[in-house]
Design a protein around this nucleic acid. Structure first.
Length: 561
RNA sequence: UGGCCUAUGGUGUAAUUGGCAACACAGCUGGUUUUGGUCCAGUCGUUCUAGGUUCGAGUCCUAGUAGGCCAACCA
């Protein structure tokens, strides 16, 4: 069925226009081209959703291409991590490609360029070349090697390839226009000598092509129709087209580069370099620390691929500067988890409650609905007994009527259980409340259908039975940065805004049904938030991560006061 | 003394390509609720400025203003 209502983004408009004019639907092909020099983050997730989303929309293949032209920074461990993350997001790539697969072809095209007098070997230092390059406001000037003969260039380039020179002695440059208003057109470097082993080609090569001499050609070789990248590559487009002009055959599709604005997320940074710094300086435990905006971090935090994809879809794509509020991301993970996460009871900050009229030593198992949003989710049993834990924040000796929770002389329902009334409480020598004594109404049991069970009481609390509770380690996460835009200050480094309280580790008490929770399982701890089982968890010591809290209008009211 | 890109609520995107500014989030009001969750209803805008073209401009033109990008043997 064709959708008619959904509006198009500007990339889709371009494609629709191309489809009307010169392209057929079968011509469409996309690619996601990460450099394997780090882990994928939310910014990449947007690009992934854009390219693979286009593939799904038009029934077009999408390649996963590793842009691996710089052996100094790239490793195969990153290749594996990237593949894992893209697959986890739920996308399927057509071909797995590597720019390094094209090294021979790229080399031959470079030789062709030299023969046509459009490339030359420069033998100056990078400083000298930078000097001649001019500035954005001043034109550059030609260097002394710009007019070397084709024969000499061919010979030198051959010897560069054969490993006769040290790094930095010679480079191959395109001969374009040293006075171009576009700095990238002032004889860009095409090849440099690098005596480094490459993660795939090992030591087969000691000259490596630069990005600009690789990307468009790779797109062309794969017959990618629309090559989408972020806005900072816009000035590269002229060069991208120049390179393509040199080699596109008339019967082949000519790729098109188009640019979109990168997504910025509030209260975080999305730059590989900065994320690496957080890892290296030990601010976080690794690339997959649940506070990191990496895909692996979000996965460990308990986010679902659906949530991330829905987030990317609603944010959309455009060409202007932006700073998306994290609350939108949080909305989407709550929206999805609300539908799929089983409800359980857990107490994070325990206060003991004793039901004085409940027989000591006896217990009963109460029926609890697993998910009110999903009838098929069924129910489970939770144990009730004389001694329980509730949250400290759920009891006050006295409070006004806006406080729907337990107070002395007041009644409250225990979720799935009975209505209880607080009669008294005891305190330690510092005046802290350490225990509340309550009575329960035996006829008020949830679901029993009695008149008493149907009574309306304002508050409902979650709880666990002390004797049956499982102690577990729980990580509570907060935003990694205190500033909305840590990256957006010219005077201050983003590291100054690191939130030193972004992780709190506590011991919580869980209902016993959680005993067999497996790594990755997601739950809603009722009234608290969504939590998942961390990879470091074991049956002996359960470890949970808080994905996100529930929306909390009560907390907001408190804050305003 | 440059070139290029961008400008729509607090945030992010739309607007049948010149025809009633829409959707989502956030906020605020209420209602429902055995989760202060979910759900439901309501509310929140001089489309950066000034001119111009037109019956009609967020959209086209001109000028201005503001922000961003461009001088790695990185991608």
């Amino acid at each position: 069925m064709e959708e008619t209502t959904k509006s198009l983004n500007f990339i889709e408009h371009i494609i629709e226009e191309d489809l009307e004019k010169s392209y057929s639907k079968n011509d469409l092909r996309f690619r996601f081209p990460p450099e394997p020099n780090g882990y994928l983050h939310l910014g990449h997730a947007s690009a992934i959703c854009l390219n693979f989303g286009l593939g799904e929309r038009y029934g077009a293949p999408v390649n996963l291409r590793f842009d691996d032209t710089n052996p100094a920074k790239e490793e195969s461990t990153y290749v594996e991590a990237i593949k894992r993350d893209v697959a986890w997001m739920g996308f399927h790539w057509d071909k797995e490609c590597y720019a390094s697969d094209y090294f021979q072809q790229l080399y031959e095209w470079a030789v062709q360029l030299i023969k046509e007098g459009k490339a030359y070997v420069d033998s100056q230092s990078s400083e000298e070349m930078a000097q001649q390059k001019g500035t954005p406001t001043e034109p550059g000037v030609a260097g002394p090697y710009r007019d070397r003969s084709v024969e000499e260039n061919l010979d030198l380039f051959e010897r560069m390839k054969n490993g006769e020179f040290e790094e930095g002695v010679h480079v191959l440059r395109a001969k374009i226009d040293m006075a171009s208003p576009n700095m990238l057109m002032r004889d860009p470097i095409l090849y440099r000598v690098l005596h480094k082993a490459h993660h795939r080609t090992n030591t087969d090569w000691c000259i490596y092509p630069m990005y600009d001499w690789t990307h468009g050609q790779s797109d062309y070789l794969e017959q990618v129709s629309h090559s989408l990248c972020t806005l900072e590559f816009l000035p590269h487009r002229e060069l991208y087209d120049w390179c393509l002009d040199e080699l596109v055959a008339s019967d082949k599709l000519r790729p098109k580069q188009r640019e979109f604005a990168r997504r910025n997320l509030s209260h975080t940074v999305v730059s590989k370099r900065k994320l690496l710094q957080l890892v290296e300086e030990g601010v976080v435990s690794g690339w997959d620390d649940p506070r990191m905006p990496t895909i692996s971090g979000l996965r460990r935090r308990g986010y679902t691929p659906e949530a991330i994809r829905n987030f990317a879809d609603t944010v959309g794509i455009a060409k202007r500067e932006n700073l998306v509020d994290v609350s939108l991301l949080e909305f989407h993970v709550r929206e999805h988890l609300n539908k799929i996460a089983p409800r359980v009871m857990a107490v994070l900050d325990p206060l003991k409650v004793v039901i004085t009229n409940y027989a000591d030593g006896s217990e009963e198992w109460l029926e609890a609905e697993n998910n009110p949003e999903d009838e098929k989710a069924g129910s489970r049993q939770v144990p009730f007994s004389r001694e329980l834990y509730i949250e400290k924040a759920d009891f006050k000796e006295e409070a006004n009527r806006k406080f729907f929770r337990l107070k002395l002389g007041g009644e409250v329902r225990l979720k799935n259980g009975y209505i209880i009334k607080a009669e008294s409480c005891t305190k330690d020598t510092d005046g802290n409340i350490i225990e509340v004594q309550c009575t329960y109404d035996p006829k008020s049991k949830s679901g029993s259908g009695t008149e008493e069970s149907l009574r309306k009481v304002k508050g409902t609390l979650h709880w666990v039975s002390v004797a049956h509770a499982i102690a577990a380690q729980v990580h509570l996460y907060d935003r990694l940065f205190t500033d909305e835009n840590p990256d957006g200050h010219k005077e201050k480094d983003f590291m100054e805004f690191v939130n030193t309280d972004s992780l709190e580790t506590i011991t919580a008490f869980l209902e016993p049904s959680l005993k067999n929770a497996k790594v990755g399982d997601r739950f809603q701890f009722q009234r608290l938030g969504y939590f998942n089982v961390d990879q470091d968890s074991s049956p002996e010591q359960l470890v949970f991560n808080r994905t996100v809290t529930l929306r909390d209008t009560w907390a907001k009211m408190q804050q305003k006061k």
